[in-house]
Design a protein around this nucleic acid. Structure first.
Lengths: 284, 284
DNA sequence: ACGTCCGATACCCCACGGGTATCGTGTTGA
DNA sequence: TCAACACGATACCCGTGGGGTATCGGACGT
């Protein structure tokens, strides 16, 4: 008799219809039927009369329904009491600017749903810091991309994104299905901010920086540079591109992983919880 | 936050020691450690400070502990309210006489533990009715042995028991490691009560009944007949035998299944619950 | 009589909750 | 001071249970 079964029972009791209740619970009908029967078996009592147009509560089922509401409310109350007792916690989330929309739009709302009492702040990072503030201790957890120096940082891959080189659509290589790094030798590449992680810099650019190479701090600046100067830059191919630019897959560069990252030493359950939410969110 | 996790939490909080709490919960330490951490992650709160000699509740953990006792008690109260509302139910259990001891000594007590409000009656059946009263509608569920006519009866195997032929220890075949049916042709066999299930009769006896064959109604009578007259009978080899008798495995007779059986049409959750308990009981 | 709608059943598959073995670390006692 | 110990944490394995899809049986309502 766990709380899950009881929530299922309440849904069925209120809908008087297993199929509808299943929809309300975001599941399908067969496992809900089975769960109700298992609850009946465990209690040794028939809770619903099955009819051809739905189900109706038996007397025993009515008793269970009357009592269960209070139990579930009490469980929810306990949850909020406990989280309140922990004080007004704060979680700082770092993210690369181009992932900020996803993070702010889907992930953080989901997390707030789980932890309404927590103050979540989002810190958008530019391309100069692939750890999005984690390395500097500015944030507790980050959504970012590999590769970067991950000493002391634990990560979990959310999605693996192939990368391509972004160029103007009038570029000689623009129509190619894919290109290799060798074919891009000698071209002018964007420059990442000074002091950026070496692995990071090597991954997202080619070797061809000169004095005229523009330093870019955001994906947008990358694209502008590509549009205006024909400068090359590596970008995830799932980025929406403005007209006039195309992304040609790079045949010899491994995909970049979108990861959730947190300090290895950290023990904060909030961080762990955030990681779980992130995994579920991207798992969908 | 299911009730199981909360019970785990309460045990740890009271023992202040994960290992001891695990013992109290009849489990080992690692999964309990993990369960506590998962609960912490879900709530986004640290519940215990870990020290080198155990764990201590944090303020948030104290709040959870204070509230959880009431919740668990309420859950138990709901359980008894619901079962009470179903009225004073009765479950009639049929069993073959030789299995009665196991059923009455272990199975039924376990079942009473789960359903204290149910009146359980045990009906011991003789060898004339392999369904132990199920066929006649005298009982709701039975613990018995195959084979029998199982039309309309659902069964679940609890254990598979090899059978042997029971004979006096001065019988010429008594020292054999096993015998075949052919070697027993022409011997005198016990007779089961008239009207017994044909498959049942064929399984538990050989073909050699004559006017002098004794009719036996219990395993004990079987054994007496074997002792006094040298009559043969088939019996499970796990039966304890009186001195002077031996059971020689029958090489060409398949094992008999100890089964729990119930009417296929029956929908009583009590019966299902009993079946579950029986499976767990024999699964140990 | 047949189509429709309900819950029940059969079957598959992955996640989770159990297990064992081992580790890291802080305490303790020789 | 250092070795032995004790406790919780981790890594890994495995079976079960709770999800899913496809399908059945049976009761209405045309």
């Amino acid at each position: 008799m766990d709380l899950r079964s009881l929530r299922y029972f309440v849904a069925v009791a209120e809908e008087r219809h297993i199929g509808r209740a299943a929809g309300r619970l975001h599941m399908t009908q067969p496992p809900l039927s089975r769960a109700i029967r298992q609850l009946e078996d465990e209690l040794g009592v028939i809770l619903f009369e099955r009819t051809s147009k739905g189900v109706v509560l038996t007397p025993a089922g009515t008793v269970l329904y009357d009592e269960t509401g209070a139990l579930l409310r009490q469980a929810d109350r306990i949850r909020s009491r406990v989280t309140d007792a922990a004080g007004t916690a704060t979680l700082a989330v770092g993210t690369l600017a181009d992932a900020a929309e996803q993070v702010g739009g889907r992930l953080v709302p989901l997390f707030r749903e789980r932890h309404p009492h927590v103050n979540v702040t989002i810190r958008e990072s530019d391309l100069g810091d692939p750890t999005a503030g984690l390395g500097a201790g500015l944030v507790d957890v980050a959504i970012t991309r590999t590769p970067f120096d991950n000493t002391g940082i634990a990560t979990h891959v959310l999605r693996s994104v192939p990368v391509g080189v972004v160029m103007r659509d009038d570029d000689p290589l623009a129509r190619r299905a894919s290109v290799s790094s060798a074919e891009l030798a000698g071209r002018r590449w964007v420059r990442l901010p000074d002091g950026s992680d070496p692995a990071w810099t090597a991954y997202w650019t080619g070797g061809g920086q000169d004095d005229a190479s523009p330093t870019v701090r955001t994906i947008q600046e990358c694209l502008q540079a590509a549009l205006w100067n024909g400068t090359l830059a590596v970008a995830p191919v799932d980025q929406p591109l403005p007209v006039g630019l195309v992304a040609v897959p790079l045949s010899d560069r491994s995909p970049s992983d979108l990861v959730v990252a947190w300090p290895k030493t950290g023990r904060s359950p909030l961080v762990r919880s955030f990681v779980q939410v992130a995994e579920n969110c991207w798992g969908l």
